[in-house]
Design a protein around this nucleic acid. Sequence first.
DNA 1: TACTCAGGGCCAATG
DNA 2: CATTGGCCCTGAGTA
Length: 441
Amino acid sequence: IPESEESCPVCGDRVSGYHYGLLTCESCKGFFKRSVQNNKHYTCTEQQSCPMNRTQRKRCPYCRFQKCLAVGMKTEAVRADRMRGGRNRFGPLYRRDRQIKLQRADYQTNVAPYRIKMETTIWHQSPLTPHDHYPAEGLTSLPLPYSEQLPLTGHPQEKCHMSFDYHTASTSHAMHRTVSETYTTRSTQASSSNANIVDCDPDHASPLGPFSSFLTPNFLDALIESEQDESQLCAKVLSSLQREQANRGKHDCLNTFSIMCKMADQTLFGLVEWARNSALFKELKVEDQMVLLQNCWSELLVLDHLYRQVTYGKEGLLFLTQAQIEVSTIISQAGVTLSGLVSRTQDLVAKLKALYFDRKEFVCLKYLVLFNPDVKAVLNRRQVEQTQERVNRALMEHTRQTHAGHADKFGQLLLRLPEVRSISLQVEEYLYQQMLHTKHN
DNA sequence: TACTCAGGGCCAATG
DNA sequence: CATTGGCCCTGAGTA
Ligand SMILES: [Zn+2]
Ligand SMILES: [Zn+2]
C-alpha cells in the first residue's frame, strides 16, 4: 500500500515497482533499459539541468538519463544476455528497502503523531505560567560556571567529557525574558489565535494578523526576538536528564547512547513547543499545525543539532548540550547506522561553519522547513506557501546585507536543505530501531 | 509446487 | 524513421 503513494524519483510519475535498484515509474524503467541496452549517449542542448516531470521528461534524454543515474538506478541490473524472468542479486536490497519503508510509515503514522498529540494535550490542559514553562530557570541565577558531573557507564575507557558548563550556552537571557513571557503566557487555543494575539499585543493589533504590521526589514528581527533563548532549552534538556538519572539507582546509569536518545527526545519536545509558541505558526489551523509538525519534526531535530555543532562544537568533538564526546569514539563504537549518521552530519557542520552560519539564518531555515507547502495533507496551502516565501525573502535579504562579501550565501544555505532532509530520514529510521530495541528488553 | 514480481519484449501511438 | 510507454511474457527465488 505505501508504495502506491510513492512517486518516481526521476519524473514524479506513478511508481510501478522496483526497477534497476529502486522504485520508479514504468516509463523510466523502459527508458533506462533502452538507454543501457543500446549504449546510448545523449547530449543536452541546454544547461544540463532540464526540468524532469511527467510532461517534460521526453524533452531531454540526456538530463533524464543523468537523473536516473543520480537517483541510483543501476546499469548492472540491465542484463547483457537479455535473459527474461527470474531474479537478480538485487532481490535482498528490495526486501530491505520495503522493510525500512514500512517501518518508516509505521513510525510516521503511529508514533510521531502520538507524540505530538500527547504534547499538545499537555499543552492544552495546563496553560503554562512562565515558571512552569522554564523548570530550570533557577539555574540562571547560579554562580557561573555551573558544573556538574553526570555519572556515566558503558565503555569505561571511553573519554567522555561530561562536564556541564553554562558559560558557553548562556547568552543575554534577561533581555529576551519579557518577550518570551508574553508569548508563552498567551492562551494557547491556536484556532482562535487572532483574538488572543490582538489582545496580548495591542501595539501590533491589526485585522490582518499579528505580523502584518511589521515592516519587512523588521520581520526577521521580530522572528528572532520571539525565539526562546538557547540556554533555556539546554537547561530544560539537562534538567530532565538529571531527573531521569535521579530516578535510577547509582549503579544503574545510562550509557552514552541512551543519553543521546533521551536528549533527542527532549529536544523534540522543545521543538514542538517552539513551533507552537511561534506567532506565525499560531496563525495556522490546528490541523495544519499537526501535519506540518508530523512532516518535519526530524528535520528540525537535525537542524537544531547542526546549529549547536556549528556554534559550540569543537573540531572532532560532538557537542551534546553541555557534554562533549569525541566523534572518533562514536565512529568506532557505535553501529554502522549511527556512525554513518554522525559522519554525514559532521560533514554538513563543516560546510556550514565555512559559510559562517549564524543564528538568524538558523531560525529562517527552521521556518522554511516547518512551513513546507508540499506536505500533502495541508488544508490552507496558500497560507503556508506565503509564510515560507516571506521567510525566504527575509533570509535572502539578511544574507545579502550582512554577508555582502560572501557571494551567494543564500543559495549555499538552501542547497544544504536536501542533505538535512536526507539525514533526518535516516535519523527517523535510527530512532525507530532504537525504539524497537528498547521495547524488546 | 504455486506464487511473486522484476527482468525482458512487443507494438500502437507519437513526432 | 526513432522513440515512447503501457502491457504482457518469463522464470529464479520464496513460502
Ligand atoms: Zn519516471
Ligand atoms: Zn537537458
